[in-house]
Write a protein that binds this DNA or RNA. Structure first.
Length: 222
DNA sequence: GCGACAG
DNA sequence: ATCTTGTCGC
């Protein structure tokens, strides 16, 4: 469907790191989400004792946010969990799910980081570049970067910094909840990334598309 | 050498 | 991520 080299997943951490550096150079931070008509949530869970990765992509219409379709992809796990290399563990299953989509969503909200990553290629950026699609990283906790806690009110935010470089936004998606770590994945700006997350968030901490994907990926819904 | 560390 | 009951708070 998209992508390129067949086996960029069967590598060791050192090779994966070089691959991340190379792909990070392709990330664009200009907002290109203008004509968005569909927004998808992407999340991965595990089954068979953590032996198999199960990814779900839940697609919604925009701006009505009506559920349109959802697909699931599975793949044997071949890469261990190493902070900073998450995409090499989960992307194979995500791409299996992508293959089951009739058409690519206009915008992808991924569970995990975008450029808020040591080499600026968290899973949201990796997927966005791979599919050449706008993507946003929605992390439930911090991987790297420094920040001052944002005010407790919904919408309050603080920049996530790595030295003097801005790599994301620490965002209070709901009043008095633990903040989310938002960062551009690909073809989205910092500001647009935050706007999209807030626009897709309803009564809960996580945006609806990700919640929907999460319920299925984690195996507690169908 | 000593912490930190997405899911 | 996943293993797990009750429990605290809105």
């Amino acid at each position: 469907m998209t992508g390129s080299a067949p086996h960029d997943w069967d590598v060791d951490a050192a090779t994966a790191g070089r691959l991340q550096q190379r792909l990070a150079a392709q990330v664009r931070l200009r907002d290109e989400t203008g004509g968005t008509a569909t927004v998808a949530g992407v999340d991965t869970g595990f089954e068979a004792d953590g032996t198999v990765a199960r990814a779900c992509i839940a697609v919604f219409s925009w701006p009505a946010l009506t559920p349109l379709t959802r697909v699931v992809g599975r793949c044997p796990v071949t890469f261990p969990y190493i902070p900073g290399y998450l995409s090499f563990r989960e992307m194979p299953a995500i791409l299996e799910a992508v293959d089951r989509l009739a058409e690519l969503p206009d915008l992808l909200l991924c569970d995990g980081q975008g450029i808020a990553h040591p080499r600026r290629l968290g899973i949201a950026s990796h997927l966005g570049v791979w599919l050449d699609r706008p993507s946003i990283g929605v992390g439930k906790s911090r991987l790297c970067g420094r920040f001052t806690p944002p005010a407790p009110d919904k919408g309050a935010s603080a920049p996530l910094l790595d030295g003097d470089e801005r790599i994301g936004t620490v965002l209070r998606s709901r009043t008095r909840v633990r903040p989310l770590f938002i960062s551009p994945g690909h073809r989205v700006s910092h500001a647009a990334a935050v706007d999209w997350v807030l626009a897709c968030t309803g009564r809960y901490r996580l945006p609806e598309p990700i919640r929907a994907a999460d319920r299925i990926a984690s195996g507690r819904a169908r």
